[in-house]
Amino acid sequence: MAQFRYLRYFTKRYPLTVTGAVIIFLVVMVSLAAPLVSPHNPYTLNLTDRLKPPGSIYLLGTDELGRDILSRIIYGARLSLLAGVGIVGIAGLFGIVIGSVSGLLGGKVDQAVMRLMDIMLAFPSLVLALALSAALGPNFRNSILAIAIVKIPVYVRLVRGQALSIKERQFVKAAQTFGAPKVWIISRHIIPNCLSPVVVQATLGIGEAILIAATLSFIGLGAQPPAAEWGAMVSMGRIYLLDQWWYASFPGIAIFITVIGFNLFGDGVRDMLDPRFHN
């Protein structure tokens, strides 16, 4: 009952956040239940039904090899979510460790780390991801890794800033008076207390990560055919854009809706974790 009341209050007060959450929920559910909900096999070629417009059999039409676009979009959700969460997860994890150590130790270690991060941030992130991805070899896994590496500095900076302020907090001073070693202070006091902004950054970052992963696939440096990946689908469909508009449009819309969902939700999470929110 109390939960229900909270939910109703929340929906009324933060409709956009709830919309974002609902979108994410739907995308996640659809991707988990892909074999159950997709009307066709996403990889089965059906050369008699090439480039069919949306209709009763193929709800969103077919591509040039006669594969059902709706089914491919449903399966594509898996790859996009994996890309988004994987990129943010890897970048966040490294960011937390490097940032908290750098912040607590300070001095020369901190200086060196931060200058390295500055250098990485000086490159446009897409260009750096492109170069890394090409160097690692163009496939889906490597594209995730490449984007994650490019995103690490964002989290390092964030966590280091937090660590600098948390290490001055009195519970850290108190821990020092009982002789707590540095590893203890980092793992017990600093990391748990800088997680909130990292979570916010990560939620907001998933949308962008999905977008970059799709972009790499679009260019041909990410997921390779015949994988059902939204960016790759848009890329393949773009030559048919004038006559078979549905081919590139529907995967594009899928990207758009998913990214919007994560962004709306991320904004909400940021507001919720803001101490001023609890008035």
Binding site: F171, A174, A175, T177, F178, G179
Partner: peptide, 27 residues
């Protein structure tokens, strides 16, 4: 160090907000 301890002004800031009371006292 364990012979000299401190109690700070603001207990809000001197207790780690992510710890339960038991974890705080046993630290």
């Amino acid at each position: 160090k364990s012979q000299i301890q401190i109690v700070f002004q603001d207990p809000q800031s001197s207790l780690n907000p992510r710890f339960k009371i038991e974890q705080i006292v046993e630290e």
